[in-house]
Simulated assay, not measured.
Amino acid sequence: LQISSAISFHHDVISHLSASEFHLLGLSEDPDLQRILFGLFLSMYLVTVLGNLLILLAVSSDSHLHTPMYFFLSNLSLVDICFISTTVPKMLMNIQTHSRVISYMGCLTQMSLFSIFVCMDSLLLSVMAYDRFVAICRPLQYPVMMNPRVCGVLVFVSILFCILDSQLHNLITLQCIYYKNVEISDFFCDPSHLLHLICSDTFTNNIVMYFTGVMFGFFPISGISFSYYKIVSSVLRIPSTGGKFKAFSTCGSHLSVVGLFYTTGLAVYLGSKISISSVMYTVVTPMLNPFIYSLRNKDVKRALSRLLSRAASCP
């Protein structure tokens, strides 16, 4: 008993002194489920990458889709590919090698990339809401307000803000010497989980988390809500039912993606801590986005049909 206590104490001291690696607990420790999980997540990953690549190809190959709305959509698809590629390949490798270990630098890199891409998703969705607001509420000014230069600046500024957020997390983590534990209760290095393991100044950690929540949660949601409030007000003043339907149909896909993204995100960070919420947020949402936009958007469906027809006719 004394030997066991000494070993346990020694392990606790080591984990509180330094961490050269972390242990990702994953979704399940049941060995019988590992094959099923591998097949399931590999399938979802391939579907996500293929679906978003098709959106990118459809937008780039069809001149009718060279508009601000589809420019932002193609950027969202690219970010979703990077988003899911940050977490799932490492999870698949861990299942295949029967290992739950991730190095300290590997965890830091994964956390940084995850922060960048999840924030980019949030900001791009708010920029797309602004685009719909200008298109419906300021149609005559739309070509000027949403010219290619403005669209490029909006995406560039979004990237800068996301890198800033990522570097804030890195700065706090790199200054940390002590950790409460080396086990992360998820299948990837979630920034919030990693910050909770830090034994140093918790006040600074909380400030960073609140800042991140406000910058990439509250502000985007407020902007989207305001944009759609103005959109609904404008659409309701349209006399014809057909005009109202046409205006609302251009926003349906975007609203569906916004609802899916923020609902699953809030489930992770404000509600449940179980890994299934993270799966919905990091895997299912990027996978469903191309289906939502292609199934509910006639222009995208037409572009995809032409793209597939050209591919089939090639010798």
Rank of each mutant, 00 (worst) to 15 (best):
G271W: 14
S309Y: 11
Y210W: 09
V101M: 11
H196M: 07
G252Q: 03
L307F: 14
F248M: 12
S253R: 05
M93I: 13
L168Q: 08
S234K: 05
D62G: 09
L197P: 02
S126G: 03
E29F: 11
L27C: 07
T241K: 09
N289K: 15
M145Q: 13
I159W: 13
I163M: 07
K246H: 07
L42P: 01
T97G: 01
K90M: 08
V208E: 08
T109Y: 10
R149Q: 10
E183Q: 08
S20M: 12
Q110G: 07
S43V: 14
L194P: 01
P31K: 10
C82N: 09
S5P: 02
R310P: 02
S158I: 03
L164N: 06
G243V: 05
T87H: 02
S8L: 14
G106E: 10
V284R: 06
S85T: 09
V157E: 07
S277N: 15
Q34A: 15
G106F: 08
Y178E: 09
F83S: 07
N205V: 12
P286L: 07
G242Y: 02
P286N: 09
I95E: 04
V155C: 06
S77Q: 06
M105H: 13
D186F: 05
Y104M: 12
Q175Y: 09
L260S: 10
I95K: 01
F211T: 06
N206I: 04
A312W: 12
L171T: 05
L33D: 14
M120S: 11
D121G: 11
M69Q: 13
L56T: 03
I207D: 00
L65Q: 04
V208G: 01
Y210E: 01
H11I: 11
Y142S: 12
I14F: 12
M69K: 14
V88S: 04
K180D: 07
S15Q: 15
C107T: 11
F291S: 12
T48D: 03
L304K: 10
L270P: 01
S222C: 10
P139T: 09
T86H: 02
S305L: 13
S233K: 09
L194C: 02
A303Q: 05
V257P: 00
Q141V: 01
Q110R: 06
F41K: 02
T285M: 13
F261R: 06
V134L: 08
V153H: 05
L113H: 08
L308R: 13
F218L: 15
V214F: 13
V157C: 11
F114C: 06
I102F: 01
